[in-house]
Design a protein around this nucleic acid. Structure first.
Length: 423
DNA sequence: TCTGGGGTCCTAGGACCC
DNA sequence: TCTGGGGTCCTAGGACCC
């Protein structure tokens, strides 16, 4: 049976979430900034047409934004994940086989479905909008890569109006001819340069390029699979069950640079705490932690200091206190007086199921008691709010390293005190 | 003054073992 | 003068994604 996938992607997702509770923003350019109010990560069409690019640093286009009455928001992930869950649950009514690919997009398996595909796609689009208020685009094709391309065209073409179905070769080739190689899923900027070097500029030319061996050699296995997908041969399956993360990271840029070990330690303790929380949520324990900290890489004329260390545990752990202890030890070794630190972070690696942990004859080991303690703390923090119970290592108020969020919207759906009011 | 954060997969090369 | 070969595991780094 031939495969059939739909890719459903929310339009300007973060911006659409902000607009949801601010109907006055309809038609006005809206943009959402990354953490620390650094750069744009979501833009509405109105903002795109002002020339603001994805990833543009806010400070560089600030006056342009002010001149054009752009509504700028700090990222409010609590809101976005909540809305995302609603969108995904609507989508799951259209196919039992759904892969939530990211916060704003999902693949649906439509193989074997006996309906008019254009009508079905339109129904998906209309229903999501009606039930959640979020506009989406739908692309349908026999492979995931082609569904991505269909979706892209659906989003950009006025005629398509959010829906494109690529179910025969003629239409598919027309779509591929107008898709630049850098717009193919899996072909990034580096590989695009290499492909252009081979005289390949469009997705159609890539599809028709015959020297498959050469493709594998230059672009590895993934490049070859991408080419197959363009030809209609499905190589990337649907991942329905959300697999456990193999590593968990937490890192942040500082609101203001940190020069003292105490501030650095405090920030790292906080990152460890939230990474460990995430890890316990998926019932894992880690055997490796990596710690890094560095100065501002954008500062001209100054060499960036980059410190990185890695600690292996004798036995895996999910105990925040233990991880903080080791992280601090590593951090003490990395710290250098006189450096202005801009960012720090931790990565938990070698994750394994926490019920398969071995005990060690030597050194620290998590015991049943510490596991239970962590679970209780997690439970209380979930119920009472973030970090009601936390290690003193995380510090108290006046954290200068905390990130900037000067344009934060209300907690419309996650805080009782900030629910929208209607009158 | 001001430039994000969190993941995955693949490959090459080194270490180590028999 | 001669000095193997194959396998596995780990790590670093690159490239990509949203």
């Amino acid at each position: 049976m031939t495969k059939l996938y739909a890719l459903v992607d929310c339009n300007s997702f973060f911006c659409s979430c902000e607009r949801l509770f601010r109907p006055d923003l309809e038609g006005r350019p809206v943009g959402v900034l990354s953490n620390n109010d650094g750069c744009f990560v979501s833009r509405t069409n109105e903002l795109k047409s002002l020339g603001v690019k994805m990833g543009d640093p806010y400070f560089k286009v600030k006056s342009l934004c002010e001149k054009n009455d752009v509504a700028v928001f700090s990222s409010n992930f609590a809101l976005y994940t909540n809305i995302s869950d609603r969108v995904m649950s609507v989508l799951s009514t259209f196919s039992p086989e759904i892969e939530v690919y990211s916060v704003d997009e999902a693949f649906l398996d439509l193989s074997g479905i006996d309906v008019d595909l254009n009508e079905y796609a339109r129904e998906i689009r209309d229903t999501v909008f009606k039930w959640t208020g979020i506009p989406v685009s739908v692309g349908i094709a026999p492979t995931k890569t082609l569904a991505k391309i269909a979706n892209n065209i659906g989003k950009k073409s006025k005629k398509a109006n959010g829906v494109v179905v690529l179910d025969n070769e003629k239409i598919t080739d027309i779509a591929l001819a107008r898709t630049e190689i850098s717009d193919i899923w899996g072909i990034g900027s580096k590989n695009a340069v290499k492909l252009r070097g081979l005289g390949i500029k469009t997705a159609l030319e890539f599809k028709k390029y015959k020297n498959t061996k050469n493709i594998q050699k230059i672009f590895t296995k993934l490049g070859r699979m991408t080419q197959d997908e363009l030809r209609g041969v499905s190589c990337f399956e649907l991942n329905i069950v959300s697999e456990k993360k193999k590593e968990i990271m937490c890192s942040r840029s500082f609101g203001t640079p940190v020069s003292d070990l105490r501030g650095l330690r405090e920030s790292v303790a906080n990152y460890v705490t939230s990474a460990c929380e995430k890890m316990r949520k998926q019932n894992s324990a880690c055997a490796i932690i990596e710690i890094f900290c560095h100065s501002d890489p954008y500062k001209v004329g100054e060499e960036t200091y980059f410190g990185k260390d890695r600690v292996k545990f004798l036995t895996p752990t999910s105990d925040t206190r233990r991880v903080i202890k080791y992280a601090w030890k590593a951090l003490d070794g990395l710290f250098q007086m006189g450096v202005l630190y801009k960012k720090a972070g931790v990565k938990l690696g070698s994750l394994a199921d926490d019920n398969e942990m071995q005990c060690s004859l030597f050194g620290d080991t998590d015991n049943q008691k510490s596991l239970e303690l962590m679970k209780v703390i997690d439970k209380i923090n979930t119920r009472e709010g973030d970090q009601v119970i936390r290690s003193m290592a995380c510090g108290v108020d006046n954290k200068s390293w905390k990130m900037r969020r000067e344009h934060l919207s209300q907690r419309f759906v996650t805080g009782w005190s900030e629910l929208p009011k209607c009158s």
